[in-house]
Design a protein around this nucleic acid. Structure first.
Length: 585
RNA sequence: GGGGGCGUAGUGUAGUGGUUAACACGUCGGCCUGUCAAGCCGAAGAUCGCGGGUUCGAGUCCCGUCGCUCCCGCCA
């Protein structure tokens, strides 16, 4: 129905007769002369209707409204001098239409397709098919396509095999809530949708595929966020006969080449810096630091441990920490502003926030009178504060200090505009603890998952000091967002049962839940490891979007509904009966 | 489960408890042969999310509720 796409027309086509088809993006009616911007996926081109050329086409063009679907035939013409539109790729030419065919009419859309105005999410999602017509979403989805295409090529070139794993899987109690699917053939039994293909990809390593990848849909029945949907996509990778360096090198190279091929954003540092978990927590208070700016946490504990300011002295004496960050140029913050920042740290468990303003004649602070000159000098020296800076201090248990100041750092950076939106600060965080103590369950639980290996030299610690054992795991972080994580797995029964014991999982439970995996490992499992990258998050970052909803064609709302399909929805009594289900109110 | 923000013509917004709820864009009609966010003239379009309450009087204040959204919990 068309001989060429609208957005591809150029000067070289002048004189040619073309047939175009698309949507009427905008119409400018001058009476005797009517212009359309005709849109298809390739872009826009101006078409002109004049009664001199075709009275019939001109008359029909008067009836046309935005978003009508039309076919137009005519001659490509260079635009007269001075009428070139430099804002349009096709701006040097236009098409003089001799024949117009209305393929379909359209109601006036509930929001403008032809401009990038803000529209309530509610309306956008209800009419998602119209929202997807808009430039922003088209760009985002095409970018997503380019990214997945790049990844597929890269993995293929690196000798990986793309293998599909089941969507109907088995529920496992560890981890996130499962989505479950009732079985019709087996009354009272359920499949579960994969939270990730973790176990299947490890089985594929046992099966000898050595290098597996999949762009895999994953499902977790948890509350949604700007960066979390019920279903999401991850690049899932697993490799045999590798160390963590091998996995990281593969992914680091891929990310660099990918970013260079689809984006104009600049990578801050390469090779990516590698931080240990402990270092990240010390310097940034978080295990996924945004490295686009400094403003690191500074330890003042030793400098103020003998302070007359009771909070500092008492905190230091009881094993707590006193840490600060120095906000550049923020000494002008009002009392009200600082109160807001205090609320920020209180929301993360801190009891309060001490402020010190670096001024020409020294530190001004509500606690200045408690501080000796040496203490003030030390604070200025350690924080590197210059005149006009604001020093903010939290004194508390180490975990609370990290949590509250780490969060405050991100809030301040946003406030002060410290993060360059065109920079990608990628880094690796390694040496995570293998286990953490769960107060709720009163047992050790896996930080990553129960198949994660400890670093080889760390195994002996597992019984004596489980919390100190470091995992052979790694996260890749970009601009303060975790975009992926992986580990070297356990591949032998001895270490696996050691870990299960540490987790308080009995041999019997282990057999019941993970028997298939343990059995498989007994048939010659190779050493293996892998990684999973959050594709939605990666695309969102490269699309400069805050929410992954903007890079997913048909996302759910924050309350887990689909406003277009109206799901979830009830099912018929007949369906319930077939599935052996009864609804309990 | 908890906390914050938002909800006013189709869209985006304005609106000290007090006339007929305002503006821009869009829509509809008219004029117009060089516009490209076309222009000019005119018109229509609102159960102020919904339900209660306070008040002589509620878009505005209070309570509840629904929806969207951000965050905490949760997300091996």
């Amino acid at each position: 129905m068309k001989s060429i796409n609208c957005g591809l027309l150029r000067k070289e086509h002048v004189g040619k007769t073309v047939t175009l088809a698309g949507w009427v993006h905008r119409r400018r009616d001058h009476g005797g002369l009517i212009f359309f911007d005709l849109r298809d996926r390739s872009g826009l081109v101006q078409v002109v209707f004049s009664a001199d050329v075709s009275e019939a086409a001109h008359n029909l063009a008067e009836e046309v409204r935005p978003e009508y679907v039309v076919q137009a035939r005519g001659v490509v013409r260079a635009r007269p001098a001075g009428l070139v539109n430099p804002n349009l790729a096709t701006g040097e030419i236009e098409v003089e239409v001799s024949e117009l065919n209305i393929l379909n009419t359209a109601k006036t859309p509930p929001f403008a397709i032809n401009e990038e105005t803000d529209v309530r999410d509610e309306v956008r999602l209800k009419y998602r098919y119209l929202d997807l017509r808009r430039e922003r979403m088209q760009k985002n989805l095409v970018l997503r396509h380019k990214i997945t295409t790049f990844i597929r090529n890269y993995m293929d070139q690196n000798d990986f095999v793309d293998i599909e794993t089941p969507i109907l899987l088995k529920s496992t109690p560890e981890g996130a809530r499962d989505f479950v699917v009732p079985s019709r053939l087996h009354s009272g039994k359920f499949y579960a949708l994969p939270q990730s293909p973790q176990q299947m990809k490890q089985l594929l390593m046992v099966a000898g595929y050595e290098r597996y990848y999949q762009i895999a849909r994953c499902f977790r029945d948890e509350d949604l966020r700007a960066d979390r949907q019920l279903e999401f996509t991850q690049l899932d990778v697993e490799m045999s006969f590798v160390e963590s360096d091998d996995v990281r090198a593969l992914i680091e190279t891929m990310l660099i080449q990918l970013i260079e091929s689809v984006s104009d954003m600049k990578i801050q540092q390469r090779p990516f810096p590698v931080l240990t978990y402990q270092e990240a927590m010390e310097r940034f208070g978080i295990d996924r630091p945004d490295l686009r700016y400094g403003m690191e946490l500074v330890d003042l504990t030793d400098a103020v441990r003998r302070s007359k300011f009771g909070v500092f002295a008492n905190t230091a004496a009881s094993g707590g920490r006193i840490k600060a960050l120095c906000a550049p140029g923020a000494a002008s913050f009002s009392r009200k502003k600082i109160d807001e920042l205090t609320d920020v740290v209180k929301s993360r468990g801190a009891k309060g926030l001490v402020w010190l303003k670096a001024e020409r004649d020294g530190l001004r602070s509500s606690i200045a009178k408690f501080l000796s000159e040496e203490e003030k000098d030390a604070i200025i020296r350690l924080t590197g504060a210059n005149e006009g800076d604001l020093i903010l201090v939290v004194a508390d248990k180490p975990g609370v200090v990290a949590e509250s100041l780490g969060y405050l750092r991100t809030v301040l950076a946003a406030e002060l505009g410290l993060a360059d939106p065109d920079t990608l600060a990628l880094c690796w965080v390694v040496d995570f603890p293998l286990l953490e103590w769960s107060e709720e369950e009163e047992r050790w639980v896996a930080v990553h998952h129960p198949f994660t290996s400890a670093k080889p030299e760390q195994w002996p610690l597992l019984e004596s000091d489980p919390g100190a054992v470091l995992a052979n795991a790694y996260d890749v972080v970009c601009n303060g967002m975790e975009i992926g994580g992986g580990s070297i797995r356990i591949h032998d029964a001895e270490h696996q049962s050691m870990l299960f014991r540490a987790l308080g999982i009995s041999d019997e439970e282990a057999r019941e839940q993970f028997g298939h995996l343990l059995e498989a490992f007994s048939y010659g499992a190779p050493p293996h490891g892998g990684i999973a990258l959050g594709l939605d998050r990666l695309v969102a970052i490269l699309a400069r979007e805050e929410s992954i909803r903007e890079v997913i064609a048909f996302p759910k709302t924050a309350s887990a509904t689909d406003l277009l399909l109206n799901s979830p929805s009830p099912i018929s009594q007949r369906q319930l009966e077939e599935l052996h289900l009864k609804i309990v109110e």
